[in-house]
Nucleic acid binder design. Structure first.
Lengths: 226, 226, 226, 226
DNA sequence: TATGAATGAGTATTCATTCAT
DNA sequence: GATGAATGAATACTCATTCAT
């Protein structure tokens, strides 16, 4: 009935995780290293949480348990490494996504629509992997605490984009406005997708309508006089 | 490293939980029953999840392990009973809250401000207990699946309140609008408070400002022409 | 996975059991005493062994656990009392049976046929109750160790009956012959009925044929010259 | 006070048991595997049933509890493996025994005498181990249900031997005759040795005389005209 | 006498981590 | 480096027995 790990969850972060794991550069070693991560990730997705055994990882990844401990100090470290890898991947996609949007959106409404749509689908696509990660709440944490984390980049970039239309905003303290509207969008989408909750809890209501409404809410809020 | 229970989480509900526990009516028995629940609840709050042992509950509640099993069929049942007790309490407060608001708010903006403020504070107040509950995702589930659950009442009541101002809405399909705006508010608040995430993840940004902005977002969204 | 009791099986006997239980003579008390025994007996038969809880006995017999401990020093004592009651009943039927046979059988072959048939059916009739008793092996023990036990009477009586035809015996040491032939009959029947074994193990082969063959074996053996 | 296992005794068989255990082939591993089985067997013999704890096995076998679970899926599996090992050993001895007898016995009387003597002593020798096995009733079950089981071989072989003298039989349906006489012999011996009963119950009467009488009974019964 | 709530020692099983090879 | 067998602490759950009322 452990919620996190049996070992008390140390205040972990991506960087710590990265340091903890000894990433081999060599070909063969590298390959088995990847197999561990992939096996662990698959198990996480399948289970929806961290509830897998290292024996399972070893078997699925065709690695020995000893090998795992050669790369990672603990099961926690392995999990963190998986998180890191996933988040990096998401970060890259987010970057590409924002670049797309930057070029295509010339009005606040257009930006909102495109951003919500693209981000929503990105989150949805990653939701199976994100769920177990959120379950462990690393994402949020890294999202703000880690400057190097690309999730942070998204926030900055999205906010920067919105700032282009700052003259349309209905109230002062623009930083706050974009910060909060981003939260509203992200939190609503994340929650809807059941990230951090059990799968069953997710998807109540209509996904397409929700996206549409968030896209409408965004400029409406930013322009609101208060 | 179990995320939920070792036993597959049966489709549980508050009512089931209540039935599963054998609540004694007598004084002495009743007292020890309460001590169990309270001890378990405290442990849940302290840990932020279900990760406590029955031995801990027994010790903290000054009850024997056997006594726990006299009232509950399993650890899961105990947890569900705790959830039930908390949710009942929350439900009552929510009802009282909505009654207050119904009487005081005469405009959409007033309603939004009062509702967001009151609901936000209510969630915040209960957030330490709600976190472990959300972790188990019962809340969300019951929120929609159980008609008798008062969480459901809140949604209905809040939506009904907003409907009073439906003529101000900027778009048709009012049901959808109020449903989604409620989601935006609830999800944003819940996420902000770290419900369903680890405690550390919570409280990023400015709480007071977030509440204010949600109160502004609500009518702005509802009135938006799209 | 306890085979006997959790408490090491003391060398128990019917008499000990009888002493251990405090049989009330009064009406009301007596009634609840009987209910205990009956409930326990039913559970034993249903389970095929001693694997029932006192709570079950209490519930089934509409007695309180405390009441049970008022009559018996332990669960073991209760079990022994049940055994005693059953064995007494069997003993009475055995006596009646032997009396019947004594009057009807005038030849060794007739005696053998009648005795085997009657005894076999008696054992079969009681086999559901005897199984859990045999499982605990009190029967055998009492059968030889306790003079007052009526099971012992059966042996004596059966042997006495056979002795009437001692002049037909093929070998000397008649005591031994009748003792052993009785064993062969009883052991074979008991085993066949699965007494002391699991129910599944029983009834392999043909019951009617077995009885017939035992009836033939008996005089054949006694008359055999060796 | 469980008579068998707490878990309902699944319809187990020797082969299933063998499959369930993961027998290591390597030296060191093999050694600890043997220690487990031997420790468990000793405890079974000492207790007369399955009522031992895995902690006891671990301590006695100088193995860790985890190691046991590395080889066996459950305590039940361990028990079955012990049974399997014993029954295999018995089977081999039985085969050798029958081979001996086949060569030496040229008359029905000779066969009976030799068979009873040899089989009785074999059962006696194994009685301490057989008792707990019988207690679980696997023996009997496998004896008929499992063709591959060597216990079955014994029955077939013994019956085949007796069939050699079928022309001396006093009645038709020779299959039935040899089947039943085998039962009489086996059941009587088994019961005498207290197999399936408690140790205390055993050995009432004179072992040597019983063997002798069974040896006489056998041909007498087979030749009996009925 | 009678009750039945309370007790807590006892047991099978899991799994992260270690370490001999 | 690599392996995977071995370890044992930890944990949910049972049930005979006690004892306050």
């Amino acid at each position: 009935m452990a919620a996190m790990s049996t070992t008390k969850a140390k205040s972990d972060s991506i960087s710590a995780a990265t340091e903890a794991s000894r990433v081999p550069q060599q070909g063969r070693s590298r390959a088995s290293y990847e197999r561990m991560l992939t096996a662990a990730e698959k198990l996480m997705v399948k289970r929806g949480n961290d509830d897998f055994t290292l024996t399972e990882v070893a078997k699925a990844g065709k690695v020995s348990i000893g090998s795992i401990y050669l790369r990672f100090d603990s099961k926690d470290d392995l999990i963190r490494a998986v998180h890191g890898r996933v988040l990096t991947q998401i970060g890259e996609e987010q970057d590409a996504m924002m670049q797309q949007i930057r070029q295509n959106a010339s009005t606040l409404d257009e930006f909102a629509r495109q951003f919500v749509e693209a981000y929503a689908e990105l989150l949805k696509r990653f939701s199976p992997v994100l769920r177990p990660i959120m379950f462990r709440a690393i994402y949020d944490q890294s999202m703000s605490a880690l400057g190097k984390n690309s999730a942070e980049n998204l926030v900055r970039e999205a906010e920067a984009q919105m700032m282009r239309f700052a003259d349309e905003f209905g109230r002062p303290d623009h930083e706050r406005l974009v910060g909060n509207v981003f939260r509203m969008i992200y939190y609503t989408l994340a929650r809807f997708l059941g990230l951090g909750s059990s799968p069953e809890a997710a998807n109540q209501g209509n996904w397409e309508e929700l996206k549409e409404d968030l896209a409408i809410m965004c400029p409406a809020f930013l322009r609101a006089k208060g």
